[in-house]
Design a protein around this nucleic acid. Structure first.
Lengths: 147, 147
DNA sequence: TCGTTCTTGCGGGCTCGTGGCAATAACGAC
DNA sequence: GTCGTTATTGCCACGAGCCCGCAAGAACGA
């Protein structure tokens, strides 16, 4: 099942901005949905649906449905680092990629621009248009590599 | 939980060879384990544990345990393409990576050598030692990109 | 304010994977 | 070959992550 990776990447200044965009798309703003949006804005990294549900004291299934809706409409995106649950991030800022250290679990976020050369290489070599948003680049970070 | 990515990459000519290596490591050769090894050799791509279990009419839990053992000892490796179950491949041939088309689901296998420039770029740019065996490089294949 | 339509909480259920347990199979020693 | 030890098996139960149906309730346009 291919998800919303093709949804337009919107760019929001803040929650109010995102809410306006929500309205434009004809989506309703339930209390839950607003809280989830705020949580995504407040988060300083990818968060799981269960995490949000616990944090906000919402039904997990409802959070899943909301995140799916937000993803389908280009407000959020989900990805997988290691083996845990899927993680959600706000979309719209700079599209980004992730470097995941399999030794220490560190996650480094890199911007789309920084990944351009990599993407170009994949394109030239294999003809694929690569996206580094869904799965991280797995490896060992500098610290773990040298010891 | 970090799995066997650090286990030595063995290289087997055929099943008999792998079985010999199994013995050297003090592992027993149960009928199930032999069948699973043979299935991995026969497979022309990554296969799920459930698939193997169905195919061989074995208990799924037993297959999972066997694959875990084989992975821990460097005989196999598991990876994730899309959202389905984990998939297992024989290790030991050339270590490889995967290009996954999120449109059509096509999986292209690429050799370690072909990925070297990519790895070098990640190293120079971010200081990470990248491994492309566990998660595929996600994108759109040439055919899907042009339409 | 009302009616329509979306969303929620709740319960249940599916898939993928793990763990305990007694029975059984593999293998080395003899 | 037989035997004892130890790994492995099938079976079952369970847990995480996620999804779905349904009735009650909330959001929004008219």
């Amino acid at each position: 099942m291919t998800v919303s990776h093709d949804a337009p990447g919107l760019a929001f200044v803040d929650v109010a901005d995102a809410i306006a965009a929500l309205r434009e798309r004809g989506l309703r703003l339930s209390t839950s949905r607003r809280l989830i949006l705020e949580a995504l804005f407040a988060a300083d990294g990818p968060v799981s649906a269960e995490h949000i549900a616990r944090e906000l004291n919402l039904e997990a299934s409802s959070v899943y449905r909301n995140l799916e809706t937000l993803e389908r409409h280009g407000f959020a995106r989900h990805l997988h680092l290691g083996h845990g649950p899927g993680l959600y991030v706000l979309r719209g800022r700079e599209e980004q990629g992730f470097l995941y250290c399999e030794r220490c679990g560190a996650v480094r976020t890199v911007s789309a621009a920084e990944l351009d050369p990599l993407r170009a290489q994949v394109r030239n070599r294999f003809g694929y248009e690569a996206r580094f948003e869904h799965f991280p680049i797995v490896g060992t970070c500098p610290a773990c590599s040298t010891q």
